[in-house]
Design a binder for these strands. Structure first.
Lengths: 330, 330
DNA sequence: TTGAAAGCGCTAACAC
DNA sequence: GTGTTAGCGCTTTCAA
């Protein structure tokens, strides 16, 4: 690999001039600039970003931490991030943690070591140290730590769950079960609260058997429904995301249930596929692209030292499709 | 951010000793090592990877280039790559190009500029220069350049398509249409050849109207089927991937067709969802995890300078499910 | 077993 | 407008 030295030698100038020709072309004479450019082309030089970053401590790169690349929910968010990033000249690197905080640490390391300027985390499964606040440029999207002031963009999880369950109640359902994500996850805690709020408002008591835990994956939804089906008689089911809802729906169908006749299902997210399943999935839509765009915009503000702590709460929307219907006595 | 200097100062040793305590603990005295470790802990030191990489010219990081993060096909491949990478102490960074060769170049830049040691590309949509061979450590997976000797891991695309179409022919279908990916894509060219081979062997001529082009996305499959349905009367459809097959299947159903009674559909990949749609999708399975693992193993060999050119062809398998059935006169 | 010192490739102050 | 020089934080000879 050719270095800046060789280019300088060939162009007959100093390395500083070569550097300037690249970083601030206008402050080097037209003629020398062309010599430099010719030399760069001739030796096939490409600057060593590591050395450059070491010097400037800026990489124009950001890292996005994703807990599970198999969960399609994150794809659109990433796209939103990329749109803004590209406009502002940032590269986006993705890190899949497979729900592993240790792996997440590797990606955070990129920021600490200046290989990336900032990080957007789509998961709260991060190393413990970090959960007590951090000095690195970081924004959380979707998930969050309730007690620490990290800039966040998210939805109102409790209100969203409340809306879903209220909708089912209004359809006349009384036995409403739900499949949660990891129970200690803040967004799941909030959504559970929304469920309870709606049920209690309607005068129903909470049955512990009406709840099962998954990990947001399709398979976990499938498995959770099988357990639920054995332990609790329900006419409606609310799942904390669409992947699990789709898994649960498949499980229900293969257990011989008709959706929505025997079981109404409501999910959350609104994935690409959710409108194309059979039946089409009723769900609470999260504005995925907007979440990504907003997160990136906030990160850019932070990087420009306009330090802001914001807790951005975006709007959700109930999309009624055909996996849910009015309760009917069987 | 504390540097090695501060640690050295606090521990009362030289920076060299601190460095050794981290890199080669055994060659520093037990006692000093403990002093160093204490100092590291006290100041909260974490080595600056940039500086380290600059020195060692090795980043223990690899980049995976993905053409479309929304296509679930790549998720399992990435997981395969990660498994091996982690075992060998490599970090994996993902770059989504949104089918854009310019963006792909940004990610290749990471390797040129030493921010990453090598690259695995899951797409052939790369800058033109690169297609004439490259000196950077790189392996292609799934897609490939037919004429350049880049180590590759892939399936036998022609044989796989042949197998799919042959299967439909054996079911008695004659009017077999197909939805291709981008027509200039080498894997699509190979799969088209497989289609033609099977049709011609069976004594059928090739009807240009029996073909439509998509971009491997769900939506493109949906749209392609609508066009196809207008221009060609078919009893069976082969799609070059599952995403498009699922899109086409939804389109067919909403046009009032019964799958598989009115239309048999065969896809390719075997996505997580493909076995859970209704009807379940018959498809040609690609060993996604194995593709990822193999690609990473080859890349590691290359990085260890055991330069190998390999063209690894992995096995596919026809999975007969319920989206296809014997041809019946209507 | 440890320290001094050179240098990875680059950019930015400062001089000319 | 351009060159000289220092130094980003680290690893690694070379000597002691």
């Amino acid at each position: 690999m050719p270095t800046i030295k060789e280019v300088a030698l060939l162009a007959g100038v100093s390395t500083a001039t070569v550097s300037r020709a690249m970083m601030n072309p206008q402050q080097v004479a037209e003629k020398t600039r062309r010599k430099v450019e010719a030399a760069i082309a001739e030796v096939g030089y490409s600057p060593n970003a590591i050395a450059r970053n070491l010097r400037t401590s800026e990489s124009k790169t950001i890292v996005v931490i994703i807990p599970d690349i198999e969960n399609m929910f994150f794809a659109k968010i990433v796209r939103g991030i990329q749109t803004i990033a590209q406009q502002q000249g940032y590269k986006v690197l993705l890190g899949d943690t497979v729900h592993n905080a240790t792996l997440a640490n590797d990606y955070l390391e990129l920021v600490r070591s200046k290989q990336a300027d900032g990080v957007i985390s789509l998961t709260a499964e991060l190393p413990k140290v970090l959960q007590h606040g951090t000095s690195m440029p970081m924004v959380m999207a979707c998930e969050y730590f309730p007690d620490f002031p990290i800039p966040t963009v998210r939805i109102d999880n409790q209100a969203a769950a409340y809306q879903a369950v209220k909708y089912l109640l209004e359809l006349g359902h009384k036995q409403i079960a739900y499949i949660s994500g990891p129970l200690d996850n803040p967004i799941c805690i909030a959504r559970s609260a929304g469920y309870r709020q709606a049920m209690q408002e309607a005068g129903y008591s909470i049955n512990e058997l009406a709840k099962e835990e998954g990990d947001f994956s399709f398979h976990s939804g499938h498995a959770a429904f099988e357990r639920l089906h054995r332990q609790y008689k329900m006419s409606a089911l609310f799942c904390f995301n669409d992947m699990m809802a789709l898994g649960a729906m498949r499980s229900a169908i293969s257990l011989g249930l008709k959706v929505p006749d025997d079981l109404s299902i409501v999910g959350m997210d609104d994935l690409l596929f959710s409108q194309y399943t059979d039946p089409q999935l009723t769900t609470i839509m999260q504005p995925q692209t907007l979440i990504g765009e907003t997160a990136m915009q906030i990160l850019i503000k932070i990087l420009n030292a306009k330090t802001v702590h914001q807790d951005n709460v975006l709007q959700t929307q109930l999309l009624v499709r055909s996996s849910s219907r009015r309760y009917q006595k069987l």
